[in-house]
Amino acid sequence: MNELYSKFRSLKDKIMHILVYLALIIALIPLFSILFEVFIRGISAINLDFFIKPTPAVGEIGGGVANAIQGTLITIGLASIIGVPIGIITGIFLSEYSENKLYTIIRLLNELLNGMPSIVIGLFAYVLIATVVGFSVMAASFALALIMIPIVSITTEEALKLVPASIREAAIALGTSRWKTVIFVALRITKKAIITGILQAIARIAGESAPILVTMGYWKWWFAGLDRPVANLALDIFLFAKSPFENWIVLAWGSALILIIIILSINIVARIIMKERY
């Protein structure tokens, strides 16, 4: 009787194991089929021209997405210059100054911003900036910066909260003022976690297309100033893919592959940074 029961249990255990693995495989199939499809179709688009030539005209053969790569880097760069410092400062405020009167409001706004659909943020940037200076890098970067702020601030806040009180006391007992304790001790200890948060925020905005669409629109030329639009990889994919031109469709797959590689590498770098600790 007892032996039978134990056999039944081990059989149950095996069945559960198989079910769990099955569920895992089912979950991974779409992911890998997307990666596989993009890789197979994208790789054929990739050659030297792809990286150095701008968008080809309709009917033109070859060409590349160099202008979109340039535009994406500029847009992300400007968004980071705006979003990262504000995100870090917000994170510090939320972690260190919880007794401040503004704390509840800022915490609420930050969470609201975090949950805001990116198209809504895009529309906000459109109304605030694009209606004044026109569709531009400025408007797009502003929208992307707004998406970055809560991601960076939440990681910063969480990292700072993990700094043990005993370490803060050690600094304060050496006559260190409060803000110097935050900057020279707490931020220094949590540097890696914060950098990881920044990289994750960058990976997130690199793939955004909706806010780009409403703030900058499509642009097939090179960068021509911050008050003008610039090309963008995510948006190129959208426009190229639904175009009827064979050459553009190929470029769309190539762009998708490049975008996935960029985002994947940022994530991998973030993970490596997180693991390297002494």
């Binding site: 005993s166 370490i167 006391e169 600094a171 220094r188 540097k191």
Partner: peptide, 14 residues
Amino acid sequence: IGMVFQKPNPFPMM
């Protein structure tokens, strides 16, 4: 007036 704590608390990552 310096202070030394119960549990050793050197600054980590330094």
